[in-house]
């Protein structure tokens, strides 16, 4: 009987032991959107360095993490949800709920650690509730999380409508703490937390059964069910995780601004979705990486930085450029997926 030797049309060839080192690097199609984002990021950064004084300083890059820590954490949670083919509109509202609650409780003299655990639990609980409604009652994710959005922001406004200052010593200490990475390059703890969230999420997605189940459900939920995967449990877990990440984002927000405000995080859910899409996470589910989401957040962050350096570009152009980039990436993704299908 003859052996069947098949090579995927687009993938790399099976390794030939004769000359393993001389393999020409051909990217797998699944990395193309992410590589394109990376290329774009490099181009943007280089043009920034060329055009503006001091743009090349390491602090510019390091500050990207500091300034976008909240978005990054939220987008990481969103990545899990989108990978299963869902969507979570409630994250911005969960941030406002968390900041308001944190500030109020701290003002009331609650121990910081208790407050931290409590708000993180509450965010997760809200997420789990949404996941359960989506899975058990077959309410569409869009509508279920929209209701969650109203609920979370409603709770925030109910607690307090105005901005509440945080005077807690622990919060202030964390807020004012600086970490020196290299000579003259400092960053804040929130940036480290955000980076840690990215790394943990990447590890979970790549190396745990839960992570792989997320991809499987996004790829084909019916098949996943037939293959005996815990579809319901995974789906609820994913929304719980997104709720947790949003709450964590809220905590970071409250640390950064040492205040809580019910209008905080308004519209952040769409920024997070856009970051995922720019980073190559397909909204249909099953395809994308946390690393891509990181790049997506960096792209939007770098645009903001360039606008600050430029000085005369207003927020209007920021929005338009983000829109144009979004458009470019989606059309590119569309072309890539079409090619794969053929």
């Amino acid at each position: 009987m003859t052996t069947i030797d098949v090579t995927p049309e687009t993938g790399k060839k099976p390794e030939s032991p004769a000359n393993p080192r001389r393999r020409v690097y051909r990217p797998n199609t699944k990395y193309i959107p992410i590589l394109a984002t990376l290329a774009l990021l490099v181009i943007m950064y280089t043009s920034g360095v060329v055009n503006y004084e001091n743009f090349g300083q390491p602090s510019v890059l390091v500050n990207l993490f500091r300034d976008n820590a909240v978005l990054l954490v939220v987008a990481v949670g969103m990545t899990f949800v989108i990978l299963t083919g869902g969507i979570d509109l409630s994250v911005g509202a969960v941030i406002s709920m968390t900041t308001t609650l944190t500030a109020t409780l701290l003002q009331g003299g609650w121990p910081p650690l208790v407050v931290l655990v409590l708000v993180l639990l509450l965010g997760s609980l809200l997420g789990a509730g949404q996941g359960a409604v989506i899975h058990y009652f077959k309410v569409e994710p869009f509508i279920a999380t929209l209701a969650g959005l109203f609920l979370a922001r409603g709770i925030a406004l109910f607690i307090n409508q105005s901005s509440i200052p945080i005077r807690d010593e622990t919060w202030k200490a964390i807020s004012e703490y600086r970490i020196e990475i290299a000579d003259g390059v400092v960053t804040k703890p929130i940036a480290i937390v955000a980076l840690a969230a990215v790394l943990i999420a990447a590890a979970v997605l790549a190396w745990t059964r839960f992570g792989r189940n997320v991809y499987a459900i996004g790829g084909n939920a019916d098949s996943a069910l037939l293959m005996g995967l815990p579809v319901g449990r995974t789906r609820i877990a994913v929304y719980t995780l997104s709720g947790f990440c949003a709450a964590l984002g809220g905590v970071l927000f409250s640390i950064n601004s040492t205040s809580g405000w019910a209008l905080q995080g308004n519209g952040l859910e769409l920024d997070a979705i856009a970051a995922c899409v720019i980073g190559g996470v397909l909204l249909t589910g099953g395809s994308g990486y946390v690393f891509g989401t990181l790049l997506g957040v960096m792209v939007t962050g770098l645009i903001q930085t360039i606008i600050i350096f430029q000085g005369d570009l207003n927020s209007a152009w920021t929005r338009i450029i983000v829109g144009v980039l979004l458009f470019a990436f989606i059309v590119m993704q569309r072309l890539v997926t079409r090619k794969v299908k053929q």
Partner: peptide, 27 residues
């Protein structure tokens, strides 16, 4: 075919039954 075409060949064979060590999938 009732598989997840977005996953790798190996995963499609082993998903849900991946060999693990300390919870980490041994790719």
């Amino acid at each position: 075919v009732n598989l997840c075409t977005n996953l790798s060949v190996a995963e499609n064979i082993f998903i849900g039954r991946e060999p693990r060590r300390f919870g980490r999938i041994q790719w």
